[in-house]
Simulated scan of single mutants.
Amino acid sequence: MDTIKNTVNYVTESIQGAGSTASKEANKNVAKDSNASISTRAQAAGDAIGDKFDEQAHDRKADVHREAAKH
């Protein structure tokens, strides 16, 4: 039962990590857009940093669940 739970948690964290990656990339593109206002670009840059932290956290959690599912 624990193996199934860890597998589900691994998939969930992997999906959330992918979502954070997509959001980070979108925010990076907005931050680089010279047609956007300075405040919009600054906000997007800050959001991209937050998304990067979220991405890393989800990836770490996914790795833990993947390893736990192996045992």
Results as ranks from 00 to 15, higher is better:
Met1Tyr: 12
Met1Gly: 15
Met1Glu: 12
Asp2Trp: 00
Thr3Cys: 04
Lys5Glu: 03
Asn6Gln: 13
Asn6Glu: 08
Asn6Ile: 01
Asn6Cys: 09
Val8Phe: 06
Val11Ala: 09
Val11Asp: 02
Thr12Arg: 06
Glu13Tyr: 13
Glu13Ala: 15
Ser14Trp: 01
Ser14Lys: 09
Ile15Asp: 03
Ile15Asn: 04
Ala18Gln: 10
Ala18Arg: 11
Gly19Val: 01
Gly19Thr: 00
Gly19Tyr: 07
Ser20Asp: 02
Ser20Tyr: 07
Ser20Ala: 14
Thr21Tyr: 11
Thr21Arg: 13
Thr21Cys: 04
Ala22Asp: 06
Ala22Gly: 07
Ala22Ser: 12
Lys24Ala: 05
Glu25Leu: 07
Glu25Asn: 15
Ala26Pro: 05
Asn27Arg: 13
Lys28Thr: 04
Lys28Asp: 14
Lys28Gln: 15
Asn29Glu: 15
Val30Thr: 11
Asp33Leu: 07
Asp33Gln: 10
Ser34Gln: 15
Ser34Leu: 09
Asn35His: 11
Asn35Lys: 15
Ala36Ser: 14
Ala36Arg: 15
Ser37Glu: 08
Ile38Arg: 11
Ile38His: 06
Ile38Ser: 09
Ser39His: 10
Ser39Ala: 14
Gln43Asn: 13
Gln43Lys: 13
Gln43His: 08
Gln43Met: 11
Ala44Asn: 05
Ala44Trp: 08
Ala44Pro: 03
Ala45Met: 07
Gly46Val: 00
Asp47Thr: 13
Asp47Ile: 05
Ala48Met: 01
Ala48Asn: 05
Ile49Arg: 10
Gly50Cys: 05
Gly50Thr: 09
Asp51Val: 00
Asp51Phe: 07
Asp51Asn: 15
Lys52Thr: 11
Lys52Ala: 12
Phe53Asp: 05
Asp54Cys: 03
Asp54Ile: 01
Asp54Gly: 04
Asp54Trp: 05
Ala57Tyr: 11
His58Phe: 09
Asp59Cys: 00
Asp59Arg: 14
Asp59Leu: 07
Arg60Ser: 09
Lys61Arg: 12
Asp63Pro: 00
His65Met: 09
Arg66Thr: 02
Arg66Lys: 15
Glu67Arg: 15
Ala68Cys: 09
Ala69Phe: 02
Lys70Asp: 05
His71Pro: 11
